[in-house]
């Protein structure tokens, strides 16, 4: 069925600084589409992380904060507690959320803060030059694991969605990806669900999006998608890990 397609209003005209084939752009667009569809642009506050998305505030057309490394969930807590009427989301990468900001995200989720986290997991530190992340796969080479991740030395990659789901506080935790159109459709549905839970004041919500980093992985954009499918997705399985109902 033919349809129209245009840039959502919540997305700005600015060209992004992301590398060719990096899926940050897709995820940005999905967030913007959801905000448009929910009609909440005028009361949304986004929080940019330290990481490749540090400049995210340039790419949206609503209020933004830029956080220190890993602290976005604490900032979101601060806003949401004093202005529960605002729609607040953090946009964080794997180094930011799963390493330096592990404490902040766990406690925010455990308190059941009513904001939404978009967690972009591409198994590597993108911004600082391709170093090992907590989510780097076993044997995956990075600039600080030149011989491949040695799990005997640094442990296994962290499955954040499952880890957060172990908390007893109700929440919506889901893992998605955006490597193919069918995934993009599901990811958008999940993001919309997450924001809807927030709008209803229901629970904390987190959408982990398994993403690509062609440049730091040393692959073409298409090879990166293939590698995601073959290597990341069997370990980082897609789907809802926790819903507030169970």
């Amino acid at each position: 069925m033919p349809k129209t397609f245009k840039k959502p209003e919540a997305l700005s005209d600015q060209k992004t600084h992301y590398c060719p084939g990096c899926t940050h752009g897709v995820i940005h667009r999905l967030v913007a589409e959801v905000i448009d569809e929910l009609g909440v642009r005028g009361r949304t506050v986004g929080i940019a992380p330290v990481g490749c998305a540090v400049l995210a505030y340039n790419y949206f057309t609503f209020d933004f904060l830029e956080a220190a490394h890993g602290r976005a969930p604490a900032m979101a807590t601060g806003i949401k507690r004093v202005r529960p009427d605002l729609i607040v989301f953090t946009y964080q990468g794997d180094g930011d959320l799963a390493s330096i900001g592990m404490g902040e995200i766990i406690h925010a989720a455990n308190r059941g803060e009513k904001f939404t986290t978009i967690f972009v997991n591409n198994a590597v530190y993108g911004m600082t030059g391709g170093q090992m992340a907590p989510t780097t796969m076993p044997h995956q080479r990075t600039t600080t694991s030149p011989f491949g991740r040695d799990v005997a030395d640094v442990g296994m990659p962290v499955k954040m969605a499952e880890l957060l789901s172990a908390l007893q506080t109700p929440g919506y935790i889901t893992r998605q990806t955006v490597i193919k159109p069918k995934h993009i459709v599901r990811a958008k549905k999940a993001i919309k669900q997450a924001f809807t839970y927030q709008l209803e004041g229901k629970c904390f919500s987190l959408v982990e999006v398994v993403s690509t980093c062609p440049v730091n992985w040393g692959m073409t954009p298409l090879d990166a998608i293939k590698w995601t499918e073959e290597t990341l997705l069997p370990y980082y399985q897609l789907g809802d890990v926790k819903t507030p109902e169970n």
Binding site: M1, K3, F5, Y18, G25, K180, P181, I184, V185
Partner: peptide, 16 residues
């Protein structure tokens, strides 16, 4: 005009 290209484009370069 199935728009799959638009959906996949990370840079919102394609519109219909």
């Amino acid at each position: 005009h199935c728009a799959l290209c638009c959906m996949m484009c990370p840079d919102v370069a394609i519109t219909i």
